[in-house]
Amino acid sequence: MSIYVNLDVMMARRHMGAGELADKIGITPANLSILKNNKAKAVRFSTLEALCRVLDCQPGDLLEYRPDDGAEPH
């Protein structure tokens, strides 16, 4: 997948652990782990909004596009 979630970076900058962040945004630690480890196929805007609110950041601070090597153009 070409979209990467850089949650670890923002969590480290805010000195916040995964359990605390999961509690503050209202998702399970397991679902936060899926996001953190780039295993998610989608993210709800409400979750993205909560992450940005709690981490005091912009969506672009959390999401990064990296082109796939050898990907077919559309």
Rank of each mutant, 00 (worst) to 15 (best):
N6V: 05
D61A: 11
P73Q: 10
K36Y: 05
K39L: 11
E72P: 00
M16T: 10
L63R: 00
V5I: 15
R66P: 12
L48M: 10
T47V: 11
P59G: 03
G70T: 13
L62N: 05
K36T: 04
L51R: 00
N31T: 11
P73C: 15
A18H: 06
I3A: 09
G26A: 03
I3R: 10
E72V: 15
S46I: 04
N6C: 11
A40L: 01
S46E: 04
V9P: 06
S46K: 05
A71K: 12
A12P: 10
I25G: 01
R66W: 12
V9I: 15
D69H: 13
C57R: 01
R14W: 09
N37D: 09
A40C: 08
P67H: 07
G26M: 05
D68Y: 13
A12M: 11
R13I: 12
P59F: 02
L35Q: 02
G60W: 08
R44V: 07
H74V: 15
C57F: 00
M10R: 14
E49Y: 08
S46Y: 02
P67E: 14
Y65R: 12
A42L: 00
D56E: 13
R44N: 04
D61T: 12
A12G: 06
P29N: 07
P73E: 15
T47C: 03
E72L: 15
E49I: 01
R13G: 10
F45R: 00
R14L: 04
G60R: 11
L51G: 06
C57Y: 04
T28R: 05
I34C: 02
M10Y: 07
L62W: 00
C52D: 01
P29I: 13
R66Y: 11
A71W: 03
L63P: 03
C57M: 06
R13F: 13
E72M: 15
S46T: 05
E49D: 08
R13M: 05
A30R: 05
G70Q: 11
K39H: 02
L21E: 01
D68V: 15
I27W: 04
R44L: 03
G60M: 04
N31I: 07
P67C: 09
V5Y: 08
S33H: 01
M1R: 12
F45W: 09
V9K: 09
R53L: 11
D23N: 01
